[in-house]
Simulated assay, not measured.
Amino acid sequence: MSYAIDNLVPPLTADLQAQLALNFPVRTLEIAGGRQAFRECGAGPAIVLLHGIGSGSASWLEVAQQLGQSARVIAWDAPGYGDSTPLRSLAPDASDYAERLLQLLDALGIQRCVLVGHSLGAITATAFASGVQQQRISRLVLISPAQGYGHPSRALQRQEVRNKRLRALEQLSIKQMAEQRSPYMLSPAASPKALAWVRWNMARLNPDGYRQAIELLCSDDLLRHPPLSMPCEVHCGEADGITAPESCLTLAKALGATFNLIADAGHASPIEQPYVVAGRLAFAIKESLTGASL
């Protein structure tokens, strides 16, 4: 896939940026440990969206606009992303991110919600959903979940991934990283607009927050957390080249979750197929309210 990205970004993302400011604006809360940024729209049952390592709350825009017609949609900027204060630890694990998520839910008065984790966000979502506050999660949805490299059997991969990502951060600007990595987030059939929006989001990474997220990815393991007490479902883009469908299916089986593919989508399915993803999440909200299982 090759596009003249620099020429495409301004016109292709202008309308999305306008929608973002109007329909899904960023807000901040002062909490213990600093500031927490998030976006919110809609009213109704709550659904909370956690983004991946190369993204931010804005990546959920088109999904949120659909869900906001019948639900209260919250998308956070993870610690160190957007205007959110980084975590204190230089090498945080999922429990540190889960604690910050708890602070956000408490501050917003959310006692029960559907929790959604995309990519690296799936590790934080699973940690929270299996922790002491698990009764607050009615349903867990993982989209192209990253397992992480914390298991001892993945020690060699862990070191390779950490070194590669930290070296790229040192040698390239965030903008250059976004230009290089954004095409890999999508399917070969992705639209130029989708590519431009992935790149726009990735180009807004903060180095300190990204470093902490690298440590989370490399040191934690989604499957190390206790068994889930709520229904769980896993979805994956059929053309995902980062967390491949086979890997996501394996995780789904280990979690006792259902598994479904998202057609015509790569890793960044909330951007590439927002209406399909919104439909899946709307169904998850409905199921959480009825108590039915898929």
Rank of each mutant, 00 (worst) to 15 (best):
A4K: 09
P11S: 13
L12V: 10
L22F: 01
I31W: 00
A32M: 03
R35V: 09
A46T: 01
A46Y: 00
L50K: 04
S55P: 02
Q65S: 13
P79W: 04
S84V: 13
S84W: 12
S89D: 14
A91G: 03
S95F: 00
S95P: 00
R100G: 00
L104N: 06
L108N: 09
R112N: 01
V114N: 03
V116T: 04
S119V: 05
G121D: 04
I123A: 13
F128M: 13
S130Y: 05
S130H: 06
S138W: 05
L142G: 01
P145L: 08
G150Y: 01
S153C: 11
A155T: 07
V161S: 09
R167E: 15
A178L: 05
Q180S: 15
S182V: 13
Y184G: 08
A203D: 04
N206L: 14
I214H: 05
L217Y: 07
C218N: 07
D221Y: 07
D221V: 06
P227A: 15
P227H: 13
H235F: 15
G237N: 02
A239L: 13
G241W: 03
K253I: 13
A257L: 03
F259L: 12
N260I: 00
L261P: 07
A265S: 11
A265W: 06
H267Q: 09
L281W: 03
A282H: 09
I285K: 10
S288H: 06
